[in-house]
Amino acid sequence: MSDTMKENNNTITIDGREIPFKEGQTIMDAALAADIYIPHLCHRPGLKPHGSCKLCTVEVNGRSASACTLPAAKGQEISNNTEALNGVRKTITQMLFVEGNHFCPACEKTGDCTLQAVAYHLDMLDGHFPQFYPRREVDASHPGIVLDRDRCIMCELCVRTSREMDGKDVFAITGRGIDAKLIVNSASGKLADTDITTDDLAAHICPVGAILIKEHGYEVPIGRRTFDLHTIAEPGVEPVILRKGKHADEH
């Protein structure tokens, strides 16, 4: 690309590759549009950026920043897929594993879980840190949805989806750091006493197995789950909505 072209276009450079961006896009938006994978957990296109998981940390002109919140600006030189950054991301992912109770082999979401897929992508082989074993409540009060807080990574995707997409306000996070927890906005604090239904997007958005449709699990055989067929870094691979009869190779 010639220098004149560069000046005429809004472009940023990620790991040496120059890509265009539109006004108002974040680095994450521009990267996704150019099929460049920047690891992320709390980001999802269509929802307001949240910037909490820090997995999307990149280096912009030598300084750390969250790709999902930082607006793209002309001429940014960005490092993304580097050993150092992936090392940091791996550490963050390990923390997420030990801060909750993630027992992958028995989880309905295994093979379709974004956290697990990110861990594979980053070559995470163990939790590294000692397990916190927090005590967290399961809420199975709702007839169609179960909330297993053991697996919650506080990404607030459900919080934002309920507000921004479903026009409701079912979930919220209270507390900070290790005391943070997912709560339900009802007088009883129970999911059954909210207006959430299994048709709500928020019931299906959870990237891990913390919000699940009841009575379904393991219906998709091994070999046909999302991340049996794709890696998370492949363009367009979306966390799958776990519902009977609809899956990765059937969209």
Partner: peptide
Amino acid sequence: QGRPYWEVSTFVQR
């Protein structure tokens, strides 16, 4: 105890 029943047959393999 306190786990969903549909999880059990996979869980108990451990």
